[in-house]
Simulated scan of single mutants.
Amino acid sequence: MYISEWLMWFGDSVSAPIRRKWQMPKLAKHLRPSDFRRNYTKIKVSDNPRPIGPYYAYNDSYLEIRGGRGEHFRGIITLLGLVLFLIPCSYAYLAIKMIARIVTNQESDLAPAILFVSFYSLLFIIFGYFFIYYCRHICRFELFTLRHIRVRFNRVTQQVFIQRPKHCGGTVVFRWKDIMPINTDSHHSNQEQSQFVNIFYFPSYKTGLPFSDGFSIGKNTNRPQDNRDEWEFIRRYMETGLAGLPKPRLTTTLPLPFRGWQEQIKPIFDVFNQTPKLVSYLILIPSLIFILPLLSFGYFLSECLCWQFKWPEAIQEAGKIGRLKPKETQLLDYPITIWKNQVDDNS
């Protein structure tokens, strides 16, 4: 779920060499110089604004939508992470079990028992070390972290709030007028299939930060028009309010067993529709019988092993009478290591 967000954060703001090599080609690949001077919040892109979601909140003050790309891969990483986590745990269990047998005098030959305890303990230390220092970086993409990225568009303060884990950039605040949609531009109008969520950037020349930041929202779409329709829904909400807009269906941030099934089934059928019928049938049967339930279980398990933080008080109260407007994110709000990378990049 957080792999793409982490890669974007690492490339754009952490590693200066990677940022110099990749940032502008990625952002400007389909954009002309004039595109960077546009105020995208004033440009109409669709006559059919509609919410695709999933949405968590929708009222006169703000709307909130789930962010993040690659939700349908969540079950894979979850199961892989749990297997890696259970390897050192299994050796710890065997060592403790053998110690219990020694203490209760169930082992007649003490020397081999102590040897087995030492061996299992050594394996636990070795595999535990590799998990803590290496594998945890994989597991934290889906396990023991924030359940979902959330993006809140506050029309009262005209700001966008993004809630992410710290290793993906943390919670940030940007001005609404600085937003730049990527998948809603006319440059994508000739594509027949999109298979991308809506992606947005806050370019550095607008935010004043020495690096660009960005996020994605909602579900994978089949057509570029889907992206434009949802962006138009958000744009009109922020510019004119709720009048004339369809009310989105709201969902919960709590774990739901059927959510994993929904996230997995759609990408599978999208692949089938683009492959020959014979190949589709050969893949469909094992996918529905084994792979799909397994991945859906991994998705639900990931949600159960994660948590959802509340927004900071300043963001929760944003837009209410008598409350101060949250300040936009600045470079000083980031850790000292980020500052150092920017200094090294400019030197």
Rank of each mutant, 00 (worst) to 15 (best):
L256M: 14
P248I: 05
T171N: 01
R164M: 13
P181K: 02
E232H: 04
P267G: 05
G169W: 06
Q225F: 04
P255S: 02
S194I: 04
Q163S: 05
T207F: 01
Q163T: 03
H167T: 12
S212K: 02
Q158W: 01
T221D: 03
K219P: 08
N198E: 12
P267L: 00
I268S: 11
P224M: 03
Y205Q: 10
L254V: 13
T184G: 12
F174V: 13
P276C: 09
V160R: 00
D229I: 03
P257E: 03
Q274M: 13
F202V: 07
T184R: 02
D270M: 04
T207C: 02
G169N: 07
Q262V: 15
K266T: 14
S216P: 04
F272C: 15
G214P: 04
V279H: 11
I199M: 05
S194L: 00
Y201S: 10
T157S: 12
P246K: 06
D185V: 15
T252E: 09
F196V: 10
Q191E: 09
D178K: 00
Y281P: 08
N222K: 13
G241S: 06
G218F: 00
P246R: 00
F174H: 15
T251V: 15
R259K: 14
S280R: 03
N198A: 13
G241R: 01
K206D: 00
S280M: 07
V173M: 07
L245C: 04
K277L: 14
T171S: 06
S194W: 00
R259Y: 12
T221K: 03
Q163L: 03
T221Y: 01
S186N: 15
M180H: 11
L209M: 02
G244D: 13
I182Q: 09
R235K: 08
W176M: 07
Q274C: 10
P224E: 07
Q191N: 08
K206H: 05
F161R: 10
F211M: 01
F200M: 10
D229P: 07
G214N: 01
D226G: 08
P276N: 10
F233A: 02
N273P: 02
I265C: 05
S186Y: 13
V172K: 11
K166G: 09
D229R: 02
D229Q: 05
P267Y: 04
P248S: 01
C168Q: 02
V271D: 13
P257A: 02
L278R: 10
L256H: 15
T253N: 10
L284A: 15
D270K: 01
Q193E: 12
G218M: 03
P165T: 03
G208Y: 08
Y281K: 12
P248A: 06
F196A: 11
M180R: 06
E230T: 05
Y237V: 08
G170R: 09
P276Q: 08
